[in-house]
Design a protein around this nucleic acid. Structure first.
Lengths: 201, 201
DNA sequence: GATCGTGATATACAGCGCGTATGTCAATTA
DNA sequence: TAATTGACATACGCGCTGTATATCACGATC
């Protein structure tokens, strides 16, 4: 591998910039975050930023990709700990709802991401979260648990509903009291996709 | 009433500013829209803008309130034309999905609104759309059609899923081919809230 | 109906932030 | 060791927001 010294400091700098950007974007929002403060916080200047990421939205894309990947990883773990594929899908949804209580996730991925990078289904980061749900839905249709609904549509609706519910929970006066209500409503709605609802209720 | 001449020109100016802002925000997005161009387009200057709306986000709030009200009105019409309360709820959802195909609605209400004004459930405009759905859900629970789920949660999930589905439809390569799939998936998911799914399928 | 006060809008100003163009120096290569 | 590359810093210009000040028409009061 022998990553030359040049490239390894470069990657370290990129990581520091992304890390500083995460903090700044989460705290002030993408629009209000200053690149000068950002880079100074990382011990660099805007020169490094524009060289590595092209422009401000490029940096946002990098941050979003990182956070999105972390979310997908946690959702994967939640699903893996479930007794069935179907319970796994529900667990993914619940995991999304809980994760979105994190201000960083909410602000960067759910609000600024769509506004400045466009619709999540077309992000360069491939939207790992959405992809995960899509795979689960496809498996459940194949195994005859779900009705033969369009995979993309179902996945998009499920993850959209979960993340949207999370926005509501986070904005409420008493998030921890509201969270279980959101999770329950999500699980109910998801059962609408089941072929035989009784068998799983 | 006798609206004095002063106040009536003021309201006319406000309306012209909001109208120009709608066009500009829809075309360029909130962040990239220039207040100078905006106001010049309306035959005014930024002076009128700051006097009437306080700051840039104040203008956005006014625009969002206007568009949101129009959306709620159209959804109400769609629901009214339905044979039953339950079909009315589904019709509202479908209406949201179709309305979000309008670039103005998508950009202003679904993307920039949440990013710059915060979560829709706490908008000053009261979010007429959400409120409408909430009322429909409450009625359906009272008449024993829906399971006794939390009203806020269900309404938020339903409208969130619909609007999110719309984002996906609009971003797809062939929106008109994808639209019916989104509507079908939405209707399926909504049936998860039904007390007796078979009776309505 | 003439004068005065009020307030809606225009103008002028200050500060900041982005993006680019240019400079600099360390690291790789021959 | 000399030359070249390229990662990063510095300097500049432009545009945009928000505020402070100025103007002028409208309405009130006598």
């Amino acid at each position: 591998m022998a990553a030359s010294r040049r490239t390894e400091t470069m990657e370290a700098n990129r990581a520091r910039l992304v890390s500083a950007a995460r903090r700044a974007f989460a705290a002030k929002g993408f629009a209000a975050a200053s690149m000068d403060e950002l880079t100074a916080d990382a011990g660099l200047t805007r020169g490094a930023l524009y060289h590595n990421f092209g422009d401000k939205t490029g940096l946002l894309a990098a941050v979003v990709a990182e956070v999105d990947a972390e979310m997908a990883e946690r959702a994967r773990e939640a699903a893996a700990a479930s007794p069935s594929e179907w319970e796994g899908l529900l667990a993914e949804g619940s995991a999304y709802i809980e994760m979105a209580l994190d201000p960083e996730v909410r602000r960067i991925v759910l609000l600024d991401g769509p506004a400045f990078l466009g619709d999540p289904s077309q992000w360069p980061s491939q939207n790992a979260c959405l992809d995960l749900t899509k795979q689960a839905v496809a498996r459940l249709i194949a195994s005859n648990v779900l009705k033969p609904v369009d995979v993309e549509a179902a996945a998009r609706l499920l993850s959209g509903a979960a993340l949207n519910a999370a926005l509501w929970v986070a904005a409420s006066d008493d998030p921890h009291a509201v969270l279980p209500k959101a999770v329950e409503a999500f699980r109910l709605m998801a059962t609408g996709l089941l072929k035989d609802a009784k068998a799983h209720s």
